[in-house]
Design a protein around this nucleic acid. Structure first.
Lengths: 210, 210, 210, 210
DNA sequence: CTCTAATCGAGACGGTACGTCGCGTCTTACG
DNA sequence: CGTAAGACGCGACGTACCGTCTCGATTAGAG
């Protein structure tokens, strides 16, 4: 994959105007993502919503995708920052549950990020960050390349979350929270299908340990 | 997801010229997919390679994606047709191994389908067919919605295959089959990470049974 | 001057659609030229008036200037076609008078061509055609390079005509034909200031000869 | 013509920094004019060459054209200041000859002013100054409006000078002074084609008188 | 010889038009 | 008379400049 987006991230600018424009663009994107899929957005639409000039967009991001990657990177950082510590402090199921709870609390945002045309880019960013965090970690299984473990774990998690978020309701129907699964249910599924096979552990065993 | 591609499939045409055009287009797409990612192809490019007129494309497919879905559907049908019977006849590991062998034998084709811009559409088509085959099947676990089982199993399999195919060589380096993993290794990974947790079985137990 | 516009002329297209588009664009330009100066027109404005697509413009002309040169070339051809024969058939004053009459009859058009931002391009096209007609002609005076004679004669004529047309009324006031000079008056001025010194002849002598 | 440039002239500033910036801008323009046509220059380019800030330009001139008009006005003032006195002191041919000599001595500068994209503006400024000097002067001929006499005389002179300067060499060939016409030759042409018809005099008669 | 205010550089900003590109439709001319 | 070739309307793209603006930093010239 040669479309690395890492280089597209910008460090925080010092000029107050740049900060304002940057925030306006990211907020506009988040707002629009809840209205229509990412790939149906135009840059003109984003800048119009942000209240900035069209050309200003390109002073901050080279492409629409770069803006999305920036936005996604922040959200993912936030999400991982909340779940990883628990992973080390407690156990994998607790961490998984916390992940599901957080996503559930920001369902609209994550639905936009994971179920629209943005999914591919968000997924890549997610995996990139996960790979970054996993650097130096030894795989638990001799038969499993460590990067594949991370890629599979992250990707499969995203898929299951995307399925969950898509259940809640698509654009054409009202959201019916009652018919959706609870964070605990999804965490269980996620743990049994993805996490446990990777870490070679079971929820039950962990529960006993905890 | 409203971008259903099911309706885009065409019945097999009877007119000989239509058959010829159709084949020329699909062959051209397959050839071009090995040169550059799907989303960098233009319809003009495909028709030029196919030797057909530009407008002719639209007499067969409404969009570029429809052509890809058509091509992918055939390949997926072929692949599933070879692995599913084994699943029933023998066991899940044998089926997984057969899957990996088949992909390995057509590595170039599947690399194009799974690691370029085409991945999203191929993935959707794959899941669609898998869901179709799984209709009526009861989930093996009460905590797992059956459609999610299929979606996760298919998606995770594709991810792992894509990782495998991307290992073999990107555009910049020659393909080094020696340095890649063998079909058996990948089948083992796939089975342990994805299949076994789904079917609640282990390769070892199956091997013992077989 | 390296911005030769000769190469920008296109031969008449055969396709009926091209003819229609071409005519729509030239007519739109002529119409707009009577409303505002050439350099304040945008290509979008021209295509909107013409009822054609924006990109279609570029399928016919590389720049706005090329379209103007095309339009001007036709008008100049028409004008020269009416005056040159008289020059040979009769004498220089009659030809000058015919020139002034023709311009007077199409005052609005020539005012747009000669007194707006278009003047420079029209002037160049005019001189180009004049030089083309004068090829092979021997200068009447040993001290006068023949191309300079043509350039000066054409340029000075255009200047005087432009002054005349600008007299009639600018954009802000109604046209007052009564206050302007008659074609005969202008022809006299033109002949005495420009033509006679060039051909070494006087109107009076010619009149006597005629 | 509402793009009067007269009002754009600024009074000489007192602040030393302003003087410095102003001079830097005019010098930069003159230098750049010898490298490429005026209309291909950007304000950013001029300020970069001048070593001033971009915004500083607008603190001195409202537009690029205003700067050119300022520069041109000075050069024209200088030129007219050298030729007009001779016109009154001696005769029209001597004045014409002095004009040609002066232009010949500053050929590069005047080539830039008269043969590039700047020509239109310089021409207008030239005519403006000529009209200013001619105010109150009575036309020598009843059939010739006095302003037209000035306009034609100035315009035609500029055209002939521009032709002369363009002979010397375009951008692609080295300047070959030997192949160009001498100031005296051009003065003769200019006098016979433009000046004499206007003042109703001939060089020969003047020479006899002198 | 200060001090204060004008001027400066730097460059981000909203805006406008540009010329390019690809799409999907529809017409044309040719074999 | 059907099919290729391709012109067309459309609309988004990314670029280039414009003229305005907001910053501190510098510096002139008045007190």
């Amino acid at each position: 994959m040669d479309t690395s987006l890492t280089g597209l991230k910008r460090e925080a600018p010092t000029d107050a105007r740049q900060v304002r424009s940057r925030n306006a663009l990211t907020s506009a994107l988040l707002a629009l993502l809840e209205e229509k899929p990412f790939d149906q957005l135009t840059i003109r639409e984003i800048t119009a919503r942000a209240g900035t000039g069209y050309a200003t967009f390109f002073r901050h991001y080279p492409t629409k995708e770069a803006l999305l990657a920036d936005v996604a990177a922040h959200e993912i950082e936030d999400l991982l920052g909340r779940t990883i510590p628990i992973l080390y402090a407690s156990n994998s199921y607790e961490s998984t549950l916390e992940l599901c709870r957080h996503v559930h609390e920001h369902a609209l945002l994550w639905a936009a990020l994971l179920t629209g045309g943005a999914a591919g880019i968000v997924r890549e960013e997610f995996i990139r960050q996960a790979l970054g965090l996993a650097v130096g970690t030894q795989s638990r299984h001799p038969w499993l390349p460590s990067d594949l473990g991370t890629i599979h774990g992250t990707g499969a998690t995203i898929d299951i979350l995307a399925w969950w978020l898509a259940q809640g309701g698509d654009k054409t129907s009202a959201i019916r929270p009652g018919s959706a699964h609870s964070p605990a249910e999804v965490a269980t599924i996620l743990h049994r299908l993805v996490i446990a096979p990777l870490v070679g552990d079971t929820m039950e065993r962990q529960a006993a340990t905890a």
